[in-house]
Computed example of a mutant assay.
Amino acid sequence: MHAQLTGAATGPDPADAPDAGDDSVDLGHHGDVEVGEGLVDLAVNVRRDPPPRWLAEPIAASLADLAAYPDPGPARAAVAARHGRPPAEVLLTAGAAEGFVLLAQALRGIRRPVVVHPQFTEPEAALRAAGHTVQRVLLDPADGFRLHPDRIPADADLVMIGNPTNPTAVLHPAADLAALARPGRVLVVDEAFADTTVAPDVPGEPESLAARRDLPGLLVVRSLTKTWGLAGLRIGYLLGEAALLRRLATVQPLWAVSTPALAAATACAGPEAVRAERAIAARLAADRDHLVTRLSTLPGVRVAGRPASAFVLIHRPGADRLRDELRRRGWAVRRGDTFPGLGPDWLRIAVRDRATTDAFVTVLAEILEA
């Protein structure tokens, strides 16, 4: 089975998934809920390093302008220049998650929205909250959670997918994603972790569609909170056709993006930021390879697919109990059973430095031996 199509009211998937479209999965559960005082955080996919000087200084300087209403113009122009687009094809948002809410609220006329799972749950949660009936395409873990474009219903007028996908860390080929675009359909590609990806001899972000202006209905969702540790600042943006973005902007609150967040967006769009992102992504890849290598030595632990982002997904029978024991020993990891298409035997682990990884794997090995 390459993928399974499910509706919003069908029963449980007979495989490992706890849900195949019903309401039993907690779509509002996120990694920050897993973290507690005294726990080492492997549950949240946000870098913990302090912002570099070129980013911290503009944010701090912006505090002098808080009496004025935010002006998104300069930040929008900077983001547009980074991706080779006109400013009209950029919509700044209060974090990438706001973009999903705007989509769900503005596109009331869609008939058949499809969300490809496992993936970040906020897109579906936003659609449901707006009254849409959602269908799911569940990718097959036995196939490495690969996307097969022909499995997406031809009459779907909204398709949502992540790339690289959270929580699987799978990086889908850009050609497969582009094959989903067509007139009359909005294709939403969540690239919140695109800046964490690297590939040999490929400059920039492999498989990203952020600069593509030729695909009808394409909307790319981006986040600046992961690599730069800005989750508390709330800054992201949408890239797409100007007419579609104008439609989304009609349901966005006035001054939705704060002045400090706009300063961060401007700084993160500059050449120094892009160079720094590439260097961080390269180091992340090395740390991820180390984590995967260490995990592969553990009995019964299987790493899903070929991870390409800031986290890895693992499968082991009884992983829910394993998570509880890790917690008792001071480690927080992300449970898998709140992602449609997964179940209690899955865990997501954030990539950290090698010393943290080694300490974690040592504890995990002790638990497995016991």
Rank of each mutant, 00 (worst) to 15 (best):
P167Y: 02
A80R: 04
A81E: 14
V116H: 02
F120C: 05
A142P: 04
P113W: 09
R76K: 08
I161T: 01
V137E: 11
D71I: 09
V170H: 13
R76F: 07
R85N: 13
A60E: 14
A129G: 00
A88G: 14
V101E: 05
I152L: 14
P153E: 12
A60H: 15
R82I: 09
A106F: 11
A130P: 08
L102I: 15
A169G: 13
A67P: 05
L138C: 06
A75G: 06
P118H: 03
D140K: 00
D49P: 15
T168S: 00
Q135R: 10
V170Q: 13
D140A: 06
L103G: 14
E124C: 08
P164V: 11
A106M: 04
D150C: 13
R53M: 06
V134L: 00
A56K: 07
A154V: 00
P52Y: 15
P70L: 05
N166P: 06
A78N: 12
A88Q: 15
A106T: 05
L107S: 02
A104T: 03
N166Y: 14
P113H: 05
L138S: 01
P113G: 05
D143I: 06
L147D: 08
L138G: 01
A97C: 08
D157L: 15
T121D: 00
T133K: 10
E89I: 02
P74T: 11
D65K: 05
